[in-house]
């Protein structure tokens, strides 16, 4: 791997390898001394043109735990607000010697542009681009699911039981604002590559054009999907954030109607088999797409997702920067 731009580019072997390396990285994060010397002397630039809390902090933590130097760049308060282009920003970072650029951008395709343009010689990691992809989020979701659904079962048995395994035969329901969600897109591709089935559930207004060509099923009825009427019993539900900041029109009549038809609450979770997990990429709109009771309940893996995010991003940085081809 040279860059990590999209889960659609990953083969099954590559995706499983990221999960396996992440498994070892997660083990090192249980220790008293969490820092490893692996990327000593390398520089990772976090280039954030859009607001982010957990992804930025997660990448920063991951790079620091591997002893890389981290430069964090937020568009707010930088020359970007004076009108500097992506190209000039990238050339500046290249002149400072960035070995890897972690980029989040409001425009779909910005990371690809950066990787293909020759503006920077470093590895490019997509940390979310517009409504396109967010590959490390999908990888950490898959990592979390594998820990709970494969091998030792809930909570995870020994890591050795999961190494090399994919998510074959598992069924994940993804519900919410699919239209604006790069997380949904990345997850659909990755879950497909890993052998899992995906059902997307959303009101018709929140589904993108062309969704019928994605490797998944689509339903408008959340209760039917959770009961297993669409693609069989459900192993996990992922609630997506309603991205109010991207909504330039009325996509549903009212928040109350949305949460009644597509919100995850305790009653809906009760429709699931006992082992099923609840995921949410965060940040949550409590009371809209998910109730507090569900988010803080026993099935919720939402806090664990954040922990796993560091391990998965350590694995991604390691695989992109550590070898001779890096």
């Amino acid at each position: 791997m040279r860059h990590l731009l999209s889960t659609a580019d990953l083969s099954r072997a590559e995706a499983v390898r990221v999960l396996d390396v992440a498994e070892q990285m997660a083990a090192t994060q249980q220790r008293e001394i969490k820092k490893l010397p692996t990327l000593r002397g390398r520089t990772v630039v976090n280039l954030f043109f859009e607001d982010s809390t957990r992804t930025r902090i997660s990448f920063e933590t991951a790079a620091k735990r591997l002893s890389a130097d981290v430069i964090t760049f937020s568009a707010k308060g930088s020359s970007v607000s004076k009108g500097e282009s992506l190209k000039d920003t990238a050339l500046t970072l290249q002149a400072m010697g960035a070995d890897a650029v972690v980029i989040r951008h409001g425009s779909s395709g910005a990371p690809l542009r950066l990787a293909r343009s020759g503006w920077t010689s470093g590895a490019v990691l997509n940390a979310g681009d517009g409504t396109h992809e967010h590959p490390t989020q999908a990888l950490l979701d898959a990592f979390t699911l594998r820990r709970h659904l494969v091998g030792g079962g809930p909570g995870g048995g020994p890591a050795a039981d999961r190494v090399g395994a994919d998510l074959a035969g598992k069924h994940v329901v993804v519900v919410g604002d699919v239209l604006h969600s790069r997380v949904a897109r990345s997850n659909v591709h990755l879950l497909h590559v890993l052998g899992a089935r995906t059902t997307l559930v959303a009101p018709p207004t929140l589904l993108p054009i062309g969704v019928e060509t994605w490797p998944c099923e689509v339903s408008y009825d959340l209760d039917a999907a959770l009961r297993g009427d669409v693609q069989g019993p459900v192993d996990a539900v992922m609630a997506l954030r309603v991205q109010l900041e991207r909504m330039d029109a009325a996509y549903f009549p009212s928040a109350r109607e949305y949460s009644r038809r597509y919100g995850i609450d305790a009653a809906r979770l009760a429709l699931l088999p006992p082992h099923a997990s609840l995921l949410h990429p965060g940040p949550m709109n409590r009371g809209l797409e998910i109730t507090a009771e569900a988010a803080d309940g026993a099935r919720s893996r939402i806090v664990e997702q954040v922990t796993n995010g560091v391990a998965v991003r350590m694995a991604a940085l390691y695989l992109l920067l550590a070898g001779e081809d890096a």
Partner: peptide, 21 residues
């Protein structure tokens, strides 16, 4: 004891997958 993440020759070899410690 896996030593992969502490090696000084990582950049001279294809990327290794760490083994469990």
């Amino acid at each position: 004891l896996d030593v992969t993440l502490h090696r000084d020759d990582l950049r001279r070899n294809p990327t290794r997958t760490p083994e469990p410690t």
